[in-house]
Amino acid sequence: MSKNKDRNFYYLVVDLEATCSEDGAVPRHEMEIIEIGAVMLNRSTWQIDSEFQQFIKPVRNPHLTEFCIELTTIKQEDVEKAPIFPEAMINFQHWLSEFANYIFCSWGEYDRKQFIQDCEFHGVIYPFNSEHINIKKQFSEYLGVSKGYGMAGALSKLGIVLKGTHHRGIDDARNIASIFKHIKTSNK
């Protein structure tokens, strides 16, 4: 591990994509992570120092719905050749181990709750400490409003162009990091 990574403090910005349907065919309590997108945002430089992206093969609902494929652009082939959740978590934790000091952040509470749900289902230890930053909530506080914005709406409100594909974990993680950087470094 490099000394640089030890000295720096990071915000781990995560965005998950999961199995889903618009008709209730995939109930909320049976949704499974199919993509982990994560970036390490350096608190000193406000630059992304590292990225992680992993597709995951679902086991409860192994066939993605047309709605899920359209929403995420993740194809059945992407998840078919991916590892199942416990194996994917080994890869994720290996990447995380390169960073000594980070706080788990996400847009809202969904990602944290989905990690907890999948860890419990698969018997995997939850990889984060109890600290979690809800960037969606911080964005509303930054604006001084009670309204909760979606990520794309927040980018638009700030005049930041959405980069990549919305509802793809790695692209959304990058975009969320841009929002967080803006609210933490701007003078309004």
Rank of each mutant, 00 (worst) to 15 (best):
D6W: 14
E32H: 12
E66V: 00
K5P: 04
Y142A: 07
A154M: 05
K184D: 10
F99L: 02
P27W: 13
I133P: 02
L158R: 07
Q114D: 10
E51L: 08
V145Q: 00
Y110D: 00
R7C: 10
L155N: 15
N4H: 13
Y11V: 03
T19R: 13
E109V: 09
I133S: 02
E98S: 15
Q53R: 15
T185F: 11
Y126D: 05
Q93L: 04
S21Q: 09
E87G: 11
K5V: 07
K184H: 13
R168L: 04
D6I: 14
E70A: 09
D49G: 03
V13P: 02
D78Q: 08
Q47I: 10
S44G: 11
N4A: 15
H182G: 09
T19K: 11
Q138C: 13
N129C: 10
R60Y: 13
D78A: 00
A25S: 13
W46T: 09
G108D: 07
Y126N: 03
K75C: 10
Q114R: 15
P58E: 02
A100P: 06
H122N: 14
G144Q: 06
E98L: 02
D78H: 15
F52T: 01
D15H: 14
N175D: 06
N4K: 14
T65L: 10
D118Q: 04
F55Q: 08
K163Q: 12
G169H: 12
F85G: 02
K5H: 13
Y110N: 01
R43V: 01
V13N: 00
C68K: 10
R60A: 06
V13K: 05
L41D: 09
E22Q: 10
A173M: 02
Y10A: 04
I34D: 08
I84P: 11
V13M: 03
A25N: 02
H63S: 07
E80H: 14
K136C: 12
N4Q: 10
A88H: 07
Y110R: 03
W46D: 06
S178A: 01
F115G: 01
N42I: 04
D118A: 03
C20F: 13
G150W: 14
R112G: 11
A100F: 11
C68Y: 14
T185H: 08
F52H: 10
A154G: 04
S140K: 13
N175G: 03
G24R: 08
V79G: 09
A152G: 13
F55E: 05
D172W: 14
F99P: 04
E32K: 12
N61S: 01
F180S: 08
K181G: 02
M40F: 15
I179V: 15
F121R: 11
M31V: 05
K81S: 15
E120M: 03
G108H: 02
C20H: 12
F67Y: 15
M31K: 11
Q93C: 04
L71R: 09
Y11A: 06
D172L: 03
D23Y: 11
Q117G: 06
F55S: 03
Y142K: 01
C20Q: 07
G150P: 08
A38E: 07
F180Y: 15
H122Y: 15
L158W: 14
G150L: 08
S97L: 02
K113N: 14
T45V: 07
Y11P: 03
E120I: 03
E30S: 11
S50K: 14
N101K: 11
H63V: 00
